[in-house]
Nucleic acid binder design. Structure first.
Length: 255
DNA sequence: AGTCGCCTTTGGCCTGGAAT
DNA sequence: ATTCCAGGCCAAAGGCGACT
């Protein structure tokens, strides 16, 4: 209904809509339409093995996962921190109880939340892969961010015996929230708490979670991220510079 | 049967309001 | 009048429930 009234001036519109096309022609104005991007290659040199190994860890193929399903030594990044609802206890009564609580507090049932968190966890894993393939510097940033995030959630669970679920932003430090003695919450902290609750913050009690399995997976993910960080950026980092960046810089200079 | 909002991170961009 | 900053929007994928 509104499309004839909307003024759109994207380059494609300028070509496709006769009024714009003819008007521009009349004025001898020719929009610049960029060419399709050109794919460039670069050599990973001695980093190739480390690169492929890292990729296998953060993004194993489905065949690999299936093949090593029974092998407890097979390591890969599960992004477990983002899907606590995958670790809900099999007890039907407790599940119903949690489902009811979530519906009342958040307006979102357990199964809805579990579906979402599964997607989010997978998405986070893919984001890490994308950052990895983007540049060495980007990968280092995101590794640090993710390690911090895993450590914050670990500390939270240990202190509160509850899993925090917080959308929209970085999870606050648990010490900032609950360190005050004798429950004498200052006004500042109360205000902060309300702000987070308004943005959808809530906690899932650990009695609903298969504690050992969940904590073990979080620890395993965390250690895996740290091992990758040590290999790439540790005391004796295998990576001295960014071959991708280097290749691109050379090309720019040549041009 | 089809559409839409939710939810995650990143970085560019924009806005409104406060500080200089 | 200018600068600064916090906060919000947007895209990417996709399972699920609510709604039409």
């Amino acid at each position: 209904m509104i499309s004839p009234l909307v003024v759109r001036r994207s380059r494609l519109d300028l070509e496709d809509i006769p009024e714009y096309r003819e008007d521009l022609k009349r004025q001898h104005i020719y929009p610049t339409i960029p060419e399709a991007p050109i794919e460039l290659g670069y050599n990973l040199n001695e980093v190739k093995d480390l690169y492929l190994r890292t990729l296998d860890l953060i993004s194993p193929s489905d065949e690999d996962k299936e093949k090593h399903k029974a092998d407890p030594a097979f390591r890969y990044f599960k992004a477990s921190r983002y899907k606590p609802t995958e670790y809900i206890v099999p007890n039907e009564n407790l599940r119903k109880e949690l489902d009811k609580e979530l519906n009342e507090k958040m307006g979102t049932g357990l199964y809805m939340l579990a579906g979402r968190q599964g997607v989010v966890s997978d998405f986070m894993r893919r984001l890490l892969v994308r950052r990895f393939e983007s540049s060495v510097a980007a990968f280092r940033e995101s590794l640090k961010m993710m390690i911090d995030s895993f450590e914050r959630i670990q500390a939270w669970i240990e202190k509160r015996d509850k899993v925090p679920v917080y959308k929209r932003g970085i999870l606050p430090d648990v010490e900032d929230f609950y360190e005050t003695s004798d429950d004498d919450l200052t006004e500042e902290i109360t205000a902060m708490f309300e702000k987070y609750q308004d943005r959808g913050f809530f906690e899932i009690d650990m009695k609903y979670i298969q504690r050992e399995k969940f904590m073990a997976d979080i620890q395993s993910d965390l250690q895996l991220l740290k091992d990758i960080r040590t290999e790439w950026f540790g005391e004796e980092p295998q990576i001295q510079f960014d071959y991708k960046l280097d290749a691109f810089r050379k090309l720019l200079k040549k041009l």
